[in-house]
Structure formats: C-alpha cells, structure tokens
C-alpha cells in the first residue's frame, strides 16, 4: 500500500483533462437549476449518489482486477447519453496518458492497446490506481471525490461563487463520499463473486438529458 500515491492521483492538478469539464454543472446553471451554494450542494449530492456511485463502483472493480473490457461494456450500458459516453472515453484516454507517465504498468499499456480511443474514465482510474499500488477503496474515493470536486470548481468559475463556500460544500459532502466509497468497494467485491451485472446502475435523469442539451450548444465554457 502506497497511500501517498492517492494524493497524486486525486490531486485536481493531475494532468488528465478534468479541468475542462463541469460534470453537468454548466448545463444545470444555464437551465436555472443551479444558482447558489445550496443548489450546488444538492447538485453534487445527487450526482454523487447516482452516476458518482456507479463510477466509484466501476473504479473499485477495475482496481480489484476485474476485466476492463467487461467493465467498459457495463459502463456503456449505465450511460445512455451518447454525449456522456464520449466524454467518459475522452477523459479515460487523457487519464491513461498521464497515468502511464506516472506509473508505467502493463495493465495501462493493455488499456491503450485495447481502447485506442479511450475506455470509460472510471475503468481507467481503477487500473491506474492498481498501477500506482493503490487498492479498490482508494480508487473509489478518488472517483467519488472528483465526481463532486469537478462541478464545485466549475461553479466557482461559472457563477463567480465564493471559493470558500464551494470548498465548504465539499467538506459537508465528505460523509456522503465516505458512504459512496464504502458501498462501491462492497459492490466491487460482489461483482467479483456474482458477476458484473450486479454493479449499481443508479441514474440521474437530468444529468443525462442536460448533457445532451449541453453538447448541442454552439458556444460553451466547459467540454461537458
């Protein structure tokens, strides 16, 4: 176990392209659903317990050593929005590049070979965590954390929200992140025993619909 590697992987400055994505926050701001600190918190909480929980489970399962190809198909099935599938693959491709430079590993090389246009980001994250000497719990934490820190950072830029308040939102969400990470690890172990179909599939309708609306805008600040 090499816990310090988790800080490197989870650092918002890890160069894997995340800064250009709002996790659906830009669409929610435009639609008037995300306007202040309180709605940011609710947005992040909803995202965390739906697509965030799915992503954390996929990441934990990949870190546990489950087949990335099967996990990638499971991620596809859990992402009905084509825009979000494309985003997940782009971010996966960007992450594998950074991860290979940081922690060269044959499982990362295999991901590049098998998915030249990128595998779903949570799957890559799990394999990267493994390459970094981390375990399923670390991968789940990293995934759950970035699933809420991304939108929070974006909303600071989109709404000019007080960055201290945005950070306080993340602090208040910490117990939820703990729960999601714990459940994700349990889900990964269950998937190892009973099959990948048992992974959670919770969805957030407005994230999926909003992602398609956002992808159709001619002009936007964030890639998603």
């Amino acid at each position: 176990m090499n816990r310090a590697a988790l800080l490197v992987l989870a650092d918002g400055r890890f160069p894997a392209g995340g800064y250009a994505h709002s996790g659906g926050a830009e669409a929610a701001v435009k639609a008037g659903r995300l306007t202040d600190t309180a709605s940011l918190e609710e947005f992040c909480r909803g995202r965390l317990h739906t697509s965030g929980a799915v992503a954390a489970s996929l990441a934990a399962a990949a870190a546990l050593g489950l087949d990335p190809g099967a996990l990638d198909r499971a991620a596809d099935a859990r992402t009905p929005s084509p825009a979000l599938r494309a985003v997940a693959r782009r971010l996966g491709r960007q992450l594998v590049r950074a991860a290979r430079a940081a922690w060269p590993h044959q499982r990362l090389d295999a991901l590049v070979r098998d998915f030249p246009k990128g595998a779903h980001q949570p799957v890559v994250l799990g394999v990267a965590a493994h390459a970094a000497g981390l375990g399923p719990e670390d991968a789940a934490y990293c995934s759950a954390h970035e699933g809420v820190s991304g939108p929070a950072t974006a909303v600071v830029r989109l709404l000019g929200l007080d960055p201290f308040e945005a950070t306080a939102v993340l602090a208040r969400l910490a117990p939820d992140v703990d729960r999601v990470a714990r459940d994700a690890v349990a889900a990964a172990h269950r998937a190892a025993r009973e099959g990948i179909d048992t992974l959670p599939a919770r969805s957030a309708p407005l994230l999926e619909i909003g992602a398609e609306a956002h992808a159709a805008w001619p002009v936007r600040l964030f890639a998603s």
């Binding site: 609710e42 909803g46 739906t50 499971a74 009905p80 599939a201 919770r202």
Partner: peptide, 22 residues
C-alpha cells in the same frame, strides 16, 4: 447488455434524487 438503468426516488432514496441533478 445495452442499458442498465436504475431510478430511485422518494423518502429513503439516496439524497439528492429530487435536486438539480436528479
């Protein structure tokens, strides 16, 4: 498998289900 989607809402559902993401 092409689609696997779960929707949970109402009291007792994971928090945020009725929020701006849900």
């Amino acid at each position: 498998c092409l689609l696997d989607q779960e929707l949970a809402c109402g009291p007792g559902a994971p928090a945020g289900w009725d929020g701006p993401a849900g």
